[in-house]
Amino acid sequence: MPEKRLTELRRSRVGFVFQAFNLVGALDVAQNILLPSRLSGRRPEPDWVAEVIARVGLGDRLRHRPAQLSGGQQQRVAIARALVTRPEVIFCDEPTGALDTRTAAAVLALLRSVVDQFGQTVVMVTHDPVAASYADRVLVLADGRIVRDMAQPGAERIAGHLALLGRRQPVASREG
């Protein structure tokens, strides 16, 4: 696919949430959230934008710059930015890695809700068993290979499998 088409695809059908929030410091919260729409030249749906902003709980921070926000607030801006274009899939790279436990739980609940309420797909890379436990399906990777495939595991079960990785040579399996 040509680079221009790939860029258009990413802007319209894929959302990204990075561990490093990748917010533009010169823009305020509202401008950061609307940046993908602005870059694509598409007008966002005002009702959807308002709902996304309400869901991330930043309605009172829309004119603040990223430097004026906590880490959790910055991550919620990044999530809102990923959601505002209504992508089919959202890729998250350690979205709670830099957050405190309470803020991480709120971010994970928000990501879970976009799956449950809006049918969006969230693909998350994490080393955190608690974060992974929010998923419908967890794939454990070791040395670039899938070594465990679990449906709706709890954090304890995930942590147990991760602990075993260093003790023995893992064998790929699928669990229900």
Rank of each mutant, 00 (worst) to 15 (best):
R55C: 01
E51Q: 15
G59L: 01
P66D: 05
P87G: 09
G59A: 05
P46C: 01
G15Q: 09
E51C: 03
R63T: 15
D60K: 12
D93A: 00
R86E: 11
R86L: 08
R13F: 10
G41R: 06
R81I: 14
I90Q: 12
A80W: 14
R38H: 12
P46N: 05
R63H: 15
P46K: 00
W48Q: 03
D60G: 05
Q19S: 00
D47F: 07
V24I: 15
V52D: 04
R55S: 06
G41W: 03
R42P: 06
Q68L: 07
E45F: 07
Q74E: 08
R55W: 02
I53V: 15
C92K: 02
L27I: 03
E94L: 01
G25H: 08
E51D: 13
V49L: 14
R63F: 08
V29K: 07
R13E: 15
P66K: 01
H64D: 08
S12L: 14
E51V: 04
A26N: 02
R61V: 10
A30W: 04
D28G: 11
V17K: 04
V29M: 06
P44I: 05
F18K: 03
I33S: 07
C92Y: 06
G57T: 01
P87S: 10
L83Y: 13
R81V: 13
D47P: 01
P66C: 00
R43M: 11
E51P: 04
A80P: 13
Q19C: 05
D47A: 15
P95E: 06
R55T: 01
N22Y: 13
Q73A: 08
P87V: 13
Q19L: 05
G71P: 09
L62G: 04
V77A: 06
A30L: 14
Q75H: 05
G72P: 09
S12E: 15
R86A: 06
Q73H: 04
P44L: 01
L23A: 04
